[in-house]
């Protein structure tokens, strides 16, 4: 495990990188949320970002997808600098990124099927109903939600909503998946199911993933690499087992 309080993350194989972040800074008013974020993510990697609530974990992925503009630093996704993209280019980039919101963010006026059809018809501009049905059914089967295809989001449980939200992002076959606390608000059994599902789907769809969480079990199941965020910086990096035995008091407090 490397201690990152004094070192910067280095990108040794730039061409393989899906994401390259260097010196990222973001403040809200006088509050400095991200002070110096450095991160490189390689294709096919599952990176888990651990940190306390309100530490700015979600701000990182919101910057990646262009929802929030960083104050300073380099942020390249698929080799493109996000802050320099115009509206059209940003939209195109977003079609390659999947974002799973904490709540699932299902469109509550639409059935599960319509939720899946929405991005297919508007982003991929699919018009062939047979092809749309095939893709919707396939993705719902892969998250184990095919039986609920015609249900409204209000009829689904918390875990089912997360599965449906996950299916809606996967239906576009994104290359990079961003998970914003995928297990928050779920019971331990459902949390474990969702974490395993994230791992299965990452293997099936060959996506690169960044998982924001403070659920240690989720991190243990899904992570290839764990980063710990504190005071706007990553203070530790390594495999789950490596981070677990860290001598850093803040990092070790997560595992108690």
């Amino acid at each position: 495990m490397r201690d990152l309080t004094t070192k910067e993350t280095a990108s040794d194989q730039e061409h393989e990188n899906v994401l390259h972040i260097k010196g990222l800074k973001k403040s809200f008013g006088k509050k400095e949320v991200l002070r110096d974020i450095n991160l490189d993510v390689k294709r096919g990697e599952n990176v888990v970002v651990l940190g306390k609530s309100g530490s700015g974990k979600s701000v990182i992925i919101q910057c990646i997808v262009g929802m929030i503009s960083p104050d300073a630093g380099v942020l390249q996704v698929f080799g493109e600098e996000v802050s320099s993209l115009n509206e059209k280019e940003l939209k195109k980039l977003r079609t390659r990124i999947g974002f799973l919101f904490q709540s699932g963010a299902l469109y509550d006026s639409m059935t599960v099927r319509e939720n899946m059809e929405f991005p297919l018809m508007r982003i991929l501009k699919l018009r062939n109903q047979a092809e749309i049905d095939k893709r919707v059914e396939e993705v719902l089967k892969s998250v184990g939600l095919f039986e609920s295809i015609d249900k409204m989001p209000s009829d689904l449980s918390g875990g089912m909503r997360k599965r449906a939200g996950l299916a809606r992002t996967l239906v576009l076959n994104p290359e990079l998946m961003l998970y914003d606390e995928p297990t928050t608000g779920l019971d331990p059994i459902t949390s474990r199911e969702i974490s395993n599902l994230v791992l299965q789907l990452q293997k099936k769809y060959k996506t690169t993933s960044i998982i924001i969480t403070h659920d240690m079990e989720c991190a243990a199941i899904t992570a290839d690499r764990v980063l710990v965020l504190s005071d706007g910086k990553f203070v530790a990096e390594g495999s789950f087992e490596e981070v677990k035995i860290s001598k850093n008091q803040f990092v070790s407090s997560f595992f108690k």
Partner: peptide, 25 residues
């Protein structure tokens, strides 16, 4: 109320980050 609750439950953000156009829809 409808759009406000869609904002609170991140549905508008979800449309935006997926590359769809919430303004138009």
């Amino acid at each position: 109320a409808e759009l406000g609750s869609m904002k609170v439950t991140e549905q508008i953000d979800a449309m935006e980050v997926s590359g769809a156009n919430p303004m138009q829809f």
